[in-house]
Amino acid sequence: MNIFTVSIFQSALELGLIYALVALALFISFTILNIADLTTDGCFTLGCAVGAMVTLAGHPFIALFAAMISGAMAGFVTAFLQTRLGVESILAGIIVNTGLYTVNIAVMGFSSLTNLFGCDTIFRLVEDRVSEALAGWDKVALLLIIIAVVAVALWWFLGTTLGMSIRATGDNADMVKSSSINPTFTITVGLCLANALTGLSGALIAQYQKSADINIGTGMVTIALASLIIGQSLIGNKGSTARRILGTILGSVLYRFIVAIALRLSVPAEALKLVSALIVAIAIAAPYAKKKFALKKREIANYRTSGKEEGNA
């Protein structure tokens, strides 16, 4: 059996690039701001729902921006709860995530599924024009352009005064306050930005799969975290901002390859969530386990040598 056909590689690459936006969102909230933002699941569905509805209305490009704005609004609510109302950050995310279920289903006109068959999507518009020239790689090309624009914009932003302030907020909150930066402001901007990217990813998925489903975001935070961690272990989490952004995108693509291989090896689709959870658990636990293992090895080695010395004496 040929495990990896070109078409599997291609669709994994496409999905990887789309979900890379969520991974970048978590790069901002989880890695940079040091906040576990659990708004992600609901926010992804929100972007998907808003994106689908605006696409359905005949505006596939505006749909992307509408999804980003709605995502940013969700992020703002989470940030408001934790910075102004003293709600614990994880709880703030869970609360907003729960509330978003109702919002999302309302956006889709109180239906749990919206189909976009026959609608103009950005993929279809591009396909009509350049598909032959690119031999079917038009979606990949379009997504590469979108991701490149987002990645460059993010890299540029993180080097600006505001971007640096956001990075410092997660790095050393004490230092931020004494530099006359308001952490409430930087956390709010950071979470809005992160969730805007999540929303954009949702809208792209809606157009890519030609449907929006109320449950599409379930487990998204785990999946994105898995991508982020894979990327970090590939490239290291210490390097320059550009390197880390690139690593995050690579991680997302690699994650999709892993999933594609799993599916190819006849792992049933229902098992994928468990596979994702295992990847995250293993990826997060690995550095810790490695340290423990090294310590244990030293302990055993030490026990052996000291045992010998005692024997000699």
Binding site: T161, M164, S165, R167, A168, N172, M175, V176, S179, K238
Partner: peptide
């Protein structure tokens, strides 16, 4: 306490 460790010297000073 007074500096952000993962950021560069010049970035810290810029802040």
């Amino acid at each position: 306490k007074g500096t952000a460790p993962t950021m560069t010297i010049e970035e810290n000073m810029a802040l």
